[in-house]
């Protein structure tokens, strides 16, 4: 990693203990997936966005934010939505900033501007959102991850921006 400094580590060693404290909660991954290269330049590439922010269109079924093992569903968010069309259903991260400007966690207006300015070729019709509180890692991998991957693939993006919340 070209610009990493040891002092940048915020919680050294903490993450390694998650599986001890919450058995099975952490996906164990021992390999790196092959790096896929862009097939065309960014200004010609269609971008999608996938977020764990629990952002969803108003009037869609709210995420179950109090279920003890989590909600394993996702929502499609039309990429031409305005922030006022959307709402957040997630309790596990501070939403004070996002409630004043959704772009701090779900930068839909910035991505729309990038598409308009041809910095990117365009946006998929939908973006995707789910909540990051899912305590059964195996279930997450076998259901939500597979389903969201199929849904993303169906929109034929050239690149995907993924963001945690």
């Amino acid at each position: 990693m070209e610009n990493f400094k040891e002092t940048n580590q915020l919680r050294p060693g903490l993450w390694a203990t998650v599986n001890e404290r919450y058995p099975g909660a952490m996906i164990t991954k021992s390999d790196f997936i092959p790096l896929a290269k862009l097939k065309k330049p960014l200004p010609e590439s269609r971008l999608t966005f996938v977020s764990t922010a629990g952002v969803q269109p108003k009037n869609s079924l709210p995420f179950d934010t109090v279920h003890p093992v989590g909600d394993y569903t996702f929502r499609r968010v039309p990429s031409d939505s305005k922030p006022s069309d959307l709402e957040i259903h997630q309790l596990k991260y501070p939403t004070a900033g996002a409630k004043r400007d959704l772009n701090v966690i779900f930068p839909i207006e910035r991505l729309q501007e990038f598409a308009k300015a041809k910095i990117i070729g365009g946006l998929t019709a939908n973006f995707f959102s789910f909540i990051g509180y899912n305590m059964n890692a195996e279930r997450l991998e076998q259901t939500l991850a597979e389903e969201i991957a199929d849904a993303v693939e169906a929109e034929k993006p050239d690149a995907a921006l993924l963001a945690p919340a």
Binding site: G97, N103, V104, I105, R110, P164
Partner: peptide, 9 residues
């Protein structure tokens, strides 16, 4: 800070 991966309002 959590919830602010794209910056501040």
């Amino acid at each position: 800070m959590m919830g602010h991966h794209f910056g501040v309002p």
